[in-house]
Design a protein around this nucleic acid. Structure first.
Lengths: 338, 338
DNA sequence: CCCGAAACTTCTAGCGCTGTAAGTTCGACG
DNA sequence: CGTCGAACTTACAGCGCTAGAAGTTTCGGG
């Protein structure tokens, strides 16, 4: 079955290559008899079109790169799943090439300047370290849409949720539950990411909208963006005497860390301390207690991103469009509905 | 910068295409002066070799497909991460095309008979529903290595851990902690997967090695392979009066569900019931309590699988080789060291 | 019964790159 | 000073497929 070429089919059916190609592509203007004859030859030989030849001829590879820090982070694996489904359903369908940057500058640079051109038709990229200038310079002519609230040059498309507004909503939710000393947990101790920065801005905004004032002592950074690191830093803060009754977490991983740190100390959730996470990863529903979380509309994110990328691939060359998609606060046990 | 071709560089430098190609590939027998001259032209034009042309000419795409049920399952996202790193480091380096089957028969069939040939050089596939006969028939001539304990025809390579022995070890670990009524949690209620079947066999073996006998009443199935479903079925069993003091879980997701179900009922872990999970996904370290888990040697799995796939790609055509890789029981709070 | 248009099919030129075979250029040697 | 081989470089034929031009056949109408 291997190595059957268009030409072989053509010879077997006694027609030209173009006719076979027409049949394969269901072009009109092919007589019924001819279609059957060719199809028979295709079946007999077990012909499968070679992707490479076709792609070289059409200039379209049908491949999209999806680049982000690490597929092991649930947020990204959920994103990959959605994008991969959505990409398969667009017409023409796309398949996904997975690229991990490890969230490092070198990784992000490598993804942008993979030395070969033409392998993928476009790229969805969630940057975090690299500067927007460097993104603009390096991406060359590859159609690209940026995801998330990281760096993004004005010249390029980007989709994200309104982090400030969402963080404010999360904070107000805690206030509505009667909480007054609300901490923020899980941002980087150094080199604050734009994600953390925006969420902290929104946290402060939420406090102020509620007539509370922000206290820098309530910002609890973590050494890493992991549950373990957040558990450690929150635990240390509490052991040092910090009194709080609510926590807005940078993400669900931090929230899971918080759960652990509080459980260990016999602090009740949400009775003593209520918690809001972020990303609504699947585990938030089954931890104990389950975690209230900001749920970005990932479906919309994937859809909008692919739509814009499709336009770029089709040749759209206008200024960067920055789109916001919705989010929703899913109230669960860690901070129940007011 | 777009669309600069080899030929353009050749003209710009005033040499032939082949010479430029030689420079790009660092072939010997290119004079130093020539090399510099060509390199200068490459830099000036911002030339990037087109992947497609090269691939068509060499017949090698540099792409590997990684196919499994769902990247949102932590086991698979961790696998994807490892395989992707390992694949990039082999020489020649490979990149990963992500294919999700949703764990359905249709999905698995679709992955095997993607109608275009030649897009990827090989495939790593973790099947679950499809029959081994169908795998053998459909995979055509695409080099392939199967992952996991699912169906696998003798004619094809496969890598897995010894599920029976690992399940027995997990069970014995609980026995060593003094547990006598040990349940198995999280297998399919109907259509038992080979994964579940092997683990249940090992669970029974572990009991019998310890002089205990297996009791069918202690097999607690779930409607789905999710924490929520396992929590529900374990909770129902306990509410119905089931008395147990240990649980071997089909996987860590089931273990997380168990944590939830037991917490809700005020049952202490591990004091009242000790728990062992499976897969050692990252969250097992930060749940409360943390989860003792069977840790397959994923590094070795990825390495061995890629090695065999590399041999298949290179033309090896022998009988299927079935390899086992190691596992380890990582004792954490849910079932501490004896 | 011939002509032109419609309906199909074949021809052919690439898409961008590589590898082999066929030059070309030089320096060294007889 | 002609010759040979090493060291380089060029020419060219594909890899498998697509698409537009060009050719062939078929038919209805005059």
């Amino acid at each position: 079955m291997a190595g059957v070429r268009l030409q072989d089919v053509a010879e077997h059916a006694g027609v030209s290559m173009k006719t076979v190609s027409n049949v394969v592509h269901e072009h009109p203007h092919v007589s019924h008899a001819m279609r059957e004859r060719v199809q028979k030859a295709i079946d007999e030989l077990g012909y499968r079109p070679n992707a490479l030849g076709r792609r070289l001829a059409t200039g379209r590879t049908g491949l999209l790169a999806l680049a982000f820090a690490d597929v092991r982070l649930p947020y990204f694996s959920e994103l990959a799943n959605l994008v991969s489904r959505a990409a398969a359903q667009t017409s023409p369908g796309y398949r996904l090439l997975l690229e991990e940057t490890e969230g490092t500058l070198e990784g992000e640079r490598a993804v942008l300047s993979a030395s070969e051109a033409g392998l993928v038709d476009g790229m969805l990229f969630q940057p975090s370290q690299i500067s927007s200038r460097e993104i603009a310079e390096r991406h060359g002519d590859l159609p690209m849409v940026l995801l998330g609230e990281g760096p993004a040059p004005l010249s390029m498309d980007r989709v994200m949720i309104d982090n400030v507004s969402a963080a404010a909503a999360a904070t107000r939710h805690l206030v509505a539950l009667g909480r007054r000393r609300i901490a923020f947990l899980g941002h980087e101790a150094q080199a604050l990411s734009s994600t953390s920065r925006l969420r902290i801005v929104g946290y402060q905004e939420g406090l102020e909208q509620s007539g509370l004032s922000a206290d820098p002592a309530l910002l609890i950074a973590s050494d890493e963006i992991t549950p373990a690191a957040s558990a450690a830093s929150l635990g240390a803060a509490i052991d040092a005497g910090l009194k709080i009754d609510g926590i807005v977490c940078r993400d669900d991983l931090a929230a899971m860390g918080a759960l652990r740190a509080l459980h260990e100390r016999g602090i009740r959730i949400p009775d003593d301390i209520a918690i809001v996470g972020w990303d609504n990863i699947s585990f938030t529903a089954t931890t104990f207690p389950s975690i209230t979380s900001i749920a970005p509309d990932l479906d919309a994110l994937a859809r909008v991103a692919l739509e814009m990328l499709g336009e770029r691939i089709a040749g759209f060359d206008g200024l960067g469009r920055h789109r916001l998609v919705d989010y929703e606060l899913i109230a669960r046990e860690s901070a129940p509905p007011a």
